[in-house]
């Protein structure tokens, strides 16, 4: 499949009239934040290794109201202490406890495969602070819980256009860092390391698809996939690969980690779909973190209007 209307994200789509510049005071921990300001165009938190700096560094961004939900946002505590990030352990409390060993600066991202310009990039070359926008998305985990999260990032499409994929590029494959010294969970073969995820090219180019570097207006905490992670809000959470070190453009469908682990349970598409159950549990309802009663899960996690056309004619029961 060719890139579907690669220019369908016009600048006007992003700079909606509702968007306004928000000058954020650079908060807390004075000296470090001040240095971050001095760093100017680059993402400030990346200047400082270690989690303390990453927790502190605030980002400058535009709010993208058009692509944001107005549902109640989950607390930073919930978002940063309840994580599936098996590279740091399989308990949801593990990432918050152990992710401090991840070193996010410097951060190299290799871009390869079917692109005109395969190259190694430093994170600050890929994402400039002036491009950042905040988007409040629903996140639906395959385990039937969900959150509402204010991400800060850039549309993936903007990056992909810079890389100039060739006409053979039909899929994008992402790879997480593999380094058991930094990611102690990788010492156990719970999954096939490194973690790999992928998108069809039109999914990757969709205006909702985000590369996030921040959360709650600040640099992404390690346990949430620092320094750069994928956010595809209409798919189950495991598609949102974290701590990305490689972006590869391919002609064939990538082998993705959870799909290899349980092909009948985790498909390549993994679109949120209340009609198609996980073989072991129902997907028709979900528990929004912070709520008592379960709510009904919506088709494509409530983004049906925006993304359903990507899958027209497909049997979603088969291509789950």
């Amino acid at each position: 499949m060719l890139i579907k209307r690669p220019d369908d994200i016009k600048p006007s789509d992003i700079t909606d009239e509702k968007i306004y510049h928000q000058r954020r005071a650079f908060l807390q921990a004075g000296s470090r934040a001040a240095l971050a300001v001095a760093a100017g165009a680059v993402v400030p938190g990346l200047m400082f290794p270690g989690e303390a700096a990453a927790q502190v560094a605030a980002l400058q961004f535009k709010k993208n109201a058009r692509f944001s939900t107005d549902e109640e946002i989950n607390s930073l505590k919930d978002i940063t202490r309840y994580n599936n990030f098996y590279e740091f352990g399989t308990d949801k409390k593990d990432p918050a406890k152990y992710a401090h060993t991840l070193k996010t600066d410097p951060w190299n991202v290799r871009v390869e495969g079917e692109v005109e310009k395969p190259a190694d990039y430093q994170l600050e070359d890929l994402i400039r602070e002036s491009q950042l926008e905040e988007r409040i998305y629903r996140m639906r985990c395959v385990e039937a819980w969900s959150m509402v999260i204010p991400w800060v990032g850039i549309p993936l499409s903007a990056l992909i256009k810079r890389f100039k994929p060739t006409s053979k590029a039909r899929y994008v494959e992402f790879t997480t860092l593999y380094d058991p010294a930094q990611m102690p969970g990788q010492k156990r073969g719970v999954l096939n390391w490194p973690y790999v995820e992928g998108l069809r090219m039109d999914e990757a180019m969709h205006p909702l698809t985000l590369l996030a570097v921040g959360l709650y207006g600040k640099v992404l905490p390690n346990q949430n996939g620092a320094p750069m992670r994928l956010v595809v809000p209409w798919k189950y959470g495991f598609k949102n690969i974290k701590s990305i070190v490689k972006i590869r453009f391919t002609e064939t469908m990538p082998n993705t980690t959870w799909n290899l682990s349980g092909p009948q349970e985790y498909g390549f598409y993994a679109n949120v779909n209340p009609e198609v159950d996980h073989p072991r549990w129902s997907q028709s309802r979900e528990r929004r973190i912070g709520e008592f009663f379960k709510r009904k899960t919506k088709m494509f996690n409530g983004y049906e209007e925006q993304v359903a056309s990507l899958y027209s004619g497909m049997d979603l029961r088969h291509s789950y």
């Binding site: 505590k77 309840y82 949801k92 973190i289 912070g290």
Partner: peptide, 13 residues
């Protein structure tokens, strides 16, 4: 743990 908010983000789980 419940009364001191130590059951995490998903207490029911």
């Amino acid at each position: 743990a419940g009364f001191t908010d130590q059951l995490g983000a998903n207490p029911i789980e």
